[in-house]
Design a protein around this nucleic acid. Structure first.
Lengths: 387, 387
DNA sequence: ATAAATAAGTTTAGTAAACGAACTAATAGG
DNA sequence: CCTATTAGTTCGTTTACTAAACTTATTTAT
């Protein structure tokens, strides 16, 4: 049954248009809103009045006049009307962020995640911080509007189930249902890269970009694809596993069962292995990054090579999806920088459509907070999406 | 400036919902329409009356009653209210189809396309048939509602420009503008695979599938990607070139400048080369297909190998985009069959997300007409899309 | 100072589309 | 022929938007 239109639908639609305009373009005056939306001044006044009652929006003093005439009143979005919570469930840590409605971080909790056979036990400390965060947001008008959670693994976002998160050793965990019961709040769960992609597109380095590819590099490689301003979830909500894209059909076997996966050539582990090959020394990824920063040519080479392999995979995606932007997210700013450089070079060389529509390649804006901020953004997005 | 809502918008929206319901689910009675859309009987009656006046819809006799009570009146979509034209510009041929509004073929023109330095000259015979087709559709109530054209090459669909069609030797041809001037009708141009994808999704083997990948194999490999029921066009309208996806990073150099492109392993030319390798004999692709049909093991092997390579590329796409369906379109039904078989096998083996959400693999429904029917479907889609 | 000009925002009457309830129409079965 | 039932129409009500007139606030010219 399709959604048909009636008066309530119109009102909702227009309310939502005005609210979202203010969300990303505060402050504005009533007349400016009218001009930008095409609604009449009367309609805008009525909608703004309603939004003020709902606390989503505030009148804030007078804007500069246009020389002559009555001074307009500035209206702006009120980020403190409520709070959102974003959770990053990492391999051995968790991070709980409390954000205002403009996605600015207000509070920050962290802790270690011990893996345990029972999911409930593993999540216990996280849940305690989560409840603390909810309690401390109680003073705002709307309180916590929802909790978003980013997971490193396969997630069925529609049903809210973690299908398979190898690093957490979780399989078929109905996480949304569990947390819904514990908290009684709207819960959104999604893959870590999907979350990061949305966060960057709404508030970070991809602001306003309708078509982008977000690449998250950690133990594995995750991708979040946004096309036509929509996150691509696919038929069952498990899209985004371009880390397991074959770039060498006869390459080594991957843990996923496939061969020659991108992940084997460009993950942290691949860099570690490569560094061992080049220098004869075995070090953790963090140390190799430190050496790269210090100018160790083996470290630079190892990471640059990963970037070149990423470039090969991304050239395929660029040809197929024609994104305006490719965002690279690792835990380290300097790595992002070196990677974007070598990826750009490979794209220029290998992407068929590059001359017609070259994608910009950039580092992510939120660094290690990408996932948590993104998870919260998913909640904001669904909260503020129109009818 | 976002599209805001008012009375006219609602009317348009609801009209469009009813019309599209009838377009794909004729016949229905007024009461059934009301039930399925959630609109009231009164509103449905008013909308249907309007659609009847516009000739989009007809009252056709009485439907069987439900035992007792007044018999309902069946309403059905009227495919003969107008015509659409779909054009397939091939490498050395053109095909002009006249379709009714349900995408059934009504007339069929064909001719050869001699390549010429001047685009106008090359298109002359095609344009003559096109005008003939338009003239013969004049008797319908609405006449020709638009012309869709599928092009084997890079197309900026938004601007209506053929950026680069190597096989036609066209570069930066403003085709839409040219035809608009010649015909004075709405013109849609798009890549051949994008057209095929939409055609299959609306009327063919992908009916009702929201997420699918359409793969068109001819001289090259083209892909049309549909996600969330939308054709993926990318930032500049040139998405869909997954034929130039790298499956072997050290593979041979492709005409596109990249290396190890899928197209090198699975196009018609690749099959021809492979057959030469296996049998020592050089034959055209059509002949190899004939031999395959006759049971020649070399021919079967050559085509099966192409399928396996396609499977490798498609496994990557399946992991990244999670489509419900993968459609294979070649000129030959038997080839489609063998290819889908070997692709399926490879996907089962190599796709990471296969256990969670296996895509169906199938041959296209329209065979050699895919492109022209699809191009016409693009017009139908935009003609019938709501506000 | 005061008036004129101008811009911001509000009030009010009018319009259009959907809704809901009451109505008419048609049909089968007793 | 009457009753029950379903299909479809008519009509009064609701509601959100629009347009235009109006009020408010501010600057500039006299």
């Amino acid at each position: 049954m399709t959604i048909t239109g009636d008066q309530a639908y119109i009102k909702n639609l227009n309310r939502s248009i005005v609210l979202n305009l203010l969300r990303f373009h505060s402050p504005l005056t009533r007349v400016e809103i009218a001009r930008r939306t095409g609604l009449t001044k009367a309609t805008v006044s009525s909608i703004v009045d309603q939004l003020i009652k709902e606390a989503y929006v505030l009148e804030v003093g007078q804007a500069p006049s246009k020389g002559v005439g009555r001074k307009p009143v500035s209206i702006r979005f009120n980020p403190d009307a409520g709070r959102v919570i974003g959770v990053d469930l990492g391999v051995d840590y968790y991070r709980v962020l409390v954000l205002d409605l403009s996605a600015s971080v207000v509070q920050h909790y962290e802790g270690t995640l011990h893996d345990a056979s029972r999911v409930d036990e593993a999540m216990e400390p996280m849940l305690r911080d989560l409840k603390r965060a909810v309690a401390q947001s109680g003073s705002t008008r709307l309180g916590v509007i929802g909790v978003g959670i980013g997971i490193p693994g396969l997630v069925d976002a529609k049903r809210g189930v973690v299908l398979n998160a190898p690093n957490l050793r979780w399989r078929d965990v109905p996480l949304r249902a569990m947390l819904d019961e514990a908290l009684g709040l709207p819960i959104v769960i999604d893959n870590e890269a999907n979350a990061g992609a949305i966060g960057e597109q709404l508030y970070g380095a991809g602001k306003g970009v309708a078509n982008m590819v977000y690449l998250s590099l950690a133990r594995g490689i995750g991708t979040g694809i946004i096309l036509n301003n929509q996150l691509i979830r696919g038929e069952s909500g498990v899209a985004g596993e371009f880390g397991h894209m074959t770039i060498d059909l006869n390459g080594p076997t991957c843990s996923c069962g496939n061969r020659g996966c991108l992940e084997l050539y460009a993950s942290e582990k691949a860099v570690v292995n490569r560094y061992l090959e080049l220098s004869g020394e075995s070090h953790a990824f963090v140390d190799i990054v430190r050496r790269m920063d210090a100018g160790d040519p083996y470290a630079v080479d190892a990471i640059r090579l990963a970037g070149q392999h990423l470039g090969i995979g991304l050239a395929s995606l660029a040809n197929g999806l024609n994104p305006a932007l490719i965002l690279i997210s690792t835990r380290f700013q300097s790595v992002n920088h070196l990677l974007t450089e070598s990826i750009s070079a490979v794209l220029r060389e290998r992407s068929f459509i590059h001359p017609y529509s070259p994608p910009r390649v950039q580092g992510s804006a939120f660094g290690p907070l990408s996932c948590a901020i993104g998870a919260a953004s998913l909640v904001l997005q669904s909260h503020f999406s129109g009818p």
